[in-house]
Design a protein around this nucleic acid. Structure first.
Lengths: 329, 329
DNA sequence: CGACCAATTTGGAACGTTCCAGTAGCCATT
DNA sequence: AATGGCTACTGGAACGTTCCAAATTGGTCG
């Protein structure tokens, strides 16, 4: 493995000074077009590659952005992470992605490591139970999807408007004729659970209907279990609104297993509108929050902050809409 | 945002030289225990954070590892990527993850960007159609899951033994009584498709049975379409072996839609054994390749190469086993 | 007491870039 | 012919580490 050529080698080969080569790298208009071309050609000939670490040392910006995700295996977060990463990549930034698996210890470690690597900014979808996770952070940081740190001035927060979403979904179910609507999934006590339930609770109360919450891990396995629980203990329930699509898809699987039809008699609505909603049977009604768009927007906001100093709004809510499909006709 | 303290500041505050502080940082046994403690304490007091970029400049190793994935949205690859990342993270390396979305242009760009960032090594699950993608790579690089670059001496290859897997699956279906077995999914002509079909084709020929291939994108949507095609045009087919689990799950959804029972009369087998196999209805028989374990092993192999100079085998195949579930009793 | 040794600590030169304060050359203006 | 103002380029100091050779300390031995 031979030493890779540096700016000096390029300069020497082109008969110029390293400063001129550096200017070319930065696209400075001060260098003559001919010189620029000569430098470019020399670089290509020598197989020169830019060393960002060295550049960052001097200019204190490395073009690296950290993305910390609490559960990367969940397709909702995968979609978010990939869209952020691809948007950043298109703007010339590299993304360090890390999965914390909802573990505060891992999260602290990962954030520390990213800071050591000199990331210019962070996007964090935090794990609960680690309120001090943001403590060591000095760089611009966005908290997304989950509102953990109270100081949204320092750590602007953005997420889809889940409360509105569950309101829309509940109204839709009522309009379709359902009366005994349950809410399934979401660990009890967590802010995100409260938020995703909010609209449901409000609308049910406005209509003097009683609520039924079945809290639990927002997974397929739990959804499947919910299908059984409902069939056994809550025969009157005629619709379920779910914390997320995974739970809803689990319920669909559970109903298939029990031989229970989903549709007119028993309606299921998910949340997030992951791609699979279109591929399940029956197709799943869901709340579309355009997570890919949300990811792109997150990337854009961050770069605007980083490059142009435009401070983001302390709190942003993006729109959410209901996509009606066969699981709740 | 104030300048963060450096090794010099720590040294000054502790009344020592920067060299001593550096030695402490590297855990050198040459420094006295008391001195070490003093330095540690001073660092904590000042809120010192290590600057890896600067260190890497001198020592030419940054502790960054690049992970390039062709389709991060596919749960199979997500599982792989997260397990690699978490294994590396546990050993103190940070991981730059990028999704190429099967786009050779994006792939070339992200590999270039990673090299600029000075990654110490790369793990690439490559996109087809970009045979020169590895050209600019000077660092230790593993190609995983897909065999693209022929020079496995330079770019060692490892993957589960898919050909063996499809052999096992086909034998299982034959033993269960199926005779008209189709193979669904996988883009025609690609090495990975040929490989995943290999065992199927071999076993069918050994038994003088004719094969039926239904090539296509290995997605849920395609699987669903396959279910329709089979019902309409190939009534005699009594079992399907799939390129991957997504295709198989799509078939399950398609069958549910058509009201066709999956089980004794019509058997479905997937490949990869993603988590969802246990949550589908009916539960999906699949080929377990322990992708999480494969990810950990990949990380271990890479670090062994990087840290101890142990060159990996040019080609490694990891075991694969059949997990029999309700979709093919 | 001087020499020698081991255990610690230290100063300065890298590493590959950017940034700043120039310099050189050229042309137009006085 | 001197001055000023461009444009294009340049030399050297910085950035925060690591690495190496060398210096310092405190013993021990003859």
């Amino acid at each position: 493995m031979i030493r890779r050529p540096t700016i000096h080698d390029v300069a020497a080969a082109a008969g110029l000074s390293k400063s001129t080569v550096s200017l070319v790298l930065q696209g400075s208009p001060a260098v003559h077009a001919n010189t620029r071309m000569l430098v470019r050609k020399t670089m290509a000939d020598l197989g020169y590659v830019y060393n960002r670490a060295a550049a960052g040392l001097r200019s204190a910006k490395v073009g690296l952005i950290g993305l910390v995700i609490n559960d990367l295996r969940n397709p909702f977060f995968t979609e978010f992470a990939t869209s952020v990463q691809m948007a950043l990549s298109a703007r010339g930034y590299a993304t360090v992605i890390a999965n914390t698996d909802e573990d505060p210890v891992v999260q602290a470690q990962v954030i520390g490591s990213m800071i050591e690597h000199g990331v210019s900014a962070l996007v964090i979808s935090p794990t609960y139970g680690a309120p001090d996770a943001f403590a060591p952070v000095q760089v611009p940081t966005l908290q997304v999807l989950r509102h953990l740190h109270p100081d949204t001035q320092r750590f602007p927060f953005s997420a889809p408007d889940f409360a509105l979403g569950s309101r829309l979904a509940t109204q839709h179910l009522l309009a379709a004729g359902a009366r005994n609507i349950a809410f399934a999934g979401g660990l009890p006590g967590r802010a995100i659970t409260v938020e995703r339930m909010q609209g449901y609770v409000d609308v049910m109360q406005e209509n003097n209907l009683s609520t039924l919450a079945l809290p639990g891990r927002a997974s397929r396995a739990f959804g499947r279990q919910v299908a059984r629980t409902l069939a056994r203990d809550h025969g009157a329930v005629d619709a379920v609104l779910c914390f997320n699509d995974l739970t809803a898809l689990g319920i669909l699987a559970g109903c298939a297993e029990l031989g229970r039809a989903v549709g007119r008699e028993f309606r299921v609505v998910g949340c997030d509108d992951i791609e699979e909603c279109l591929q399940s049977f029956p197709n799943l009604t869901s709340l579309r929050c355009d997570i890919a768009g949300f990811g792109c927007q997150t990337a854009a906001t961050l770069l605007d902050w980083l490059e142009n100093g435009v401070s983001p709004q302390p709190e942003t809510r993006t729109p959410i809409s209901l996509v009606c499909r066969a699981s709740s006709p």
